[in-house]
């Protein structure tokens, strides 16, 4: 039997390895019930305004399409820096997330705004490429100026039980990232069970992930609250064991402010204060920003808004 994964006590590759089959079990009904409890929190008035600003500030404004062009990315970057000029004093989003070929464009457009450039890499979204290509993909994006790399795990290998392979690949990509922070996309919609989500989370964190991320956005279901809860709890357990903080990024399917606030509630009640910033929590989303802006304007004016008044980029 091959040794799999690393020890729970450290992320260092030199540690002897223990089996990730030790990851805790997840009861589906229980975790979904718990996740739905967060949605009963009533977020009103200043809590809502503050929450929405926080959400806006946590967004990785994303475009990941075959037809993405420099023009499109430039527009997106402007939106990132100026979410809605009619409403002064808004925070910016956290990052702009693009394909590697557009990293340089984004880097230049964002200048010294403080907004990060995130790039997907490793043969996103399927990850079906040899490791050396994934490494080159990663190094290319970093060299182009990416602050953050969003990699995908090899789901096929994971399902085949080759946890070593998955672990080593993440560790290798992490090394290739250099200074860039590494987000590891589990593509939970392809994992099938919460048990596997938990196991993949544990592997990713032990292999050195700075963030764990639910989805590419290309597969349904993408982020859900229970999946995110399972991952947040994995982050908490890892933090308890190692003292190292790992960030969380649900991505895909979060397009409404209300849902984003439910996620925020969940972060607050599972991980607490330390994770309530864009350093440790992100939303991977494209249309969420506008909905947040509409809600913020509504909160300020008291008038329900129309999307016609908010730029679509």
């Amino acid at each position: 039997m091959p040794a799999t994964g690393s020890s729970r006590s450290s992320s260092s590759k030199t540690e002897p390895r223990l089996s990730f089959s030790l990851s805790p079990h997840i009861d589906q009904v229980g975790v979904e019930e718990r996740a739905s409890r967060f949605t009963t929190r009533s977020i009103k008035k200043e809590a809502k305004q503050n929450g929405l600003r926080l959400v806006l500030n946590m967004i990785d404004l994303t475009t990941l399409e075959g037809k993405d062009s420099e023009g499109k990315v430039k527009q997106l970057c402007y939106k990132a820096m100026h979410p809605h000029d009619a409403l002064p004093g808004l925070p910016t989003v956290a990052a702009v997330c693009v394909y590697p070929s557009l990293v340089r464009t984004a880097r230049q457009a964002l200048g010294n705004s403080g907004i990060k450039v995130a790039s997907v890499a490793t043969a996103f979204p399927s990850g079906q490429a040899p490791r050396d290509i994934k490494l080159r993909d990663t190094r290319y994006a970093v060299n182009e100026g990416a602050d953050e790399i969003d990699m995908v795990i090899s789901r096929g290998k994971f399902h085949a039980g080759e946890y070593n392979f998955v672990f080593d690949e993440i560790a290798a990509i992490k090394e290739a990232c250099g200074e860039a922070r590494l987000k590891v996309i589990l593509e939970t919609g392809e994992l099938g069970t919460y048990d596997k989500v938990r196991r993949a989370s544990d592997i990713a964190m032990h292999a050195g992930a700075d963030f764990i991320k639910t989805s590419t956005g290309k597969i349904q279901p993408a982020a859900t609250m229970p999946v995110t809860l399972v991952m947040l709890e994995a982050i908490r357990d890892y933090y308890f064991k190692t003292g190292r903080m790992v960030g969380m990024k649900p991505a895909g399917g979060i397009s409404k402010s209300k849902l984003a606030l439910h996620y925020l509630v969940m972060v607050k009640e599972v991980l607490g204060e330390a994770w309530l910033s864009n350093e440790w929590f992100r939303f991977g989303a494209s249309s969420l920003a506008n909905d947040v802006l509409m809600q913020l304007v509504k909160e300020q004016t008291g008038i329900y808004q129309s999307s016609n008044y908010f730029s679509v980029d």
């Binding site: 589906q28 009904v29 099938g192 349904q220």
Partner: peptide, 10 residues
């Protein structure tokens, strides 16, 4: 006892 309902996701 809970009954898993994974298929219920779609």
């Amino acid at each position: 006892h809970p009954v898993e309902n994974i298929a219920g996701a779609g």
